[in-house]
């Protein structure tokens, strides 16, 4: 059973929000005693997703949660935007694919850095990405 222990949300509207957002994620990770390597992985994945949200949808909302399951605790982030959505999810998850001018590592790279990754998108309505990193994951 997954339980939510704390909830916090933040809206991303400007590029400058990136650094404070990273700090919020770090706070949550430090709170549960996550090690430095996992912290870095989580924040880097979050950074990729926030950048995507900003680039393709002009911003959105991020939900920062501390969750627990059995004796494990973790940080779950949900990125929701009302952008154009992703037409081809399989292609978007491929290394090196990008419709914008980037390295195309954002989505597949972020997925490799976390323990759970869930992507939902409807063309014309928006995209929601959930990532979860366990403390010892």
């Amino acid at each position: 059973m997954l339980m939510t222990l704390s909830k916090d949300s933040m809206s991303i509207t400007r590029e400058q929000d990136l650094v404070p957002f990273r700090n919020r994620v770090k706070e949550a990770a430090v709170k549960i005693g996550m090690g430095i390597v996992n912290q870095t992985k989580l924040i880097t994945a979050a950074s990729e997703l926030v950048r995507n949200m900003f680039r393709y949808a002009g911003g959105g909302e991020v939900l920062i949660e501390i969750v627990s399951k059995g004796r494990e605790s973790g940080v779950r982030l949900t990125f929701a935007d009302k952008g154009p959505g992703i037409a081809n999810l399989d292609l978007a998850m491929q290394d090196g694919y990008s419709t914008g001018k980037s390295l195309g590592l954002g989505l597949p790279g972020a997925k490799r850095l976390v323990n759970e990754f869930d992507l939902k998108s409807t063309v014309g309505q928006g995209t929601t990405v959930m990532i979860l990193k366990w403390k010892n994951g």
Binding site: I36, V37, T40, K41, T44, E48, L105, P108, R112
Partner: peptide, 14 residues
């Protein structure tokens, strides 16, 4: 480069 940063970059594919 910090060790955690190096490990993360490799995992990221960079």
């Amino acid at each position: 480069m910090q060790p955690a940063v190096a490990i993360t970059l490799i995992e990221l594919g960079l």
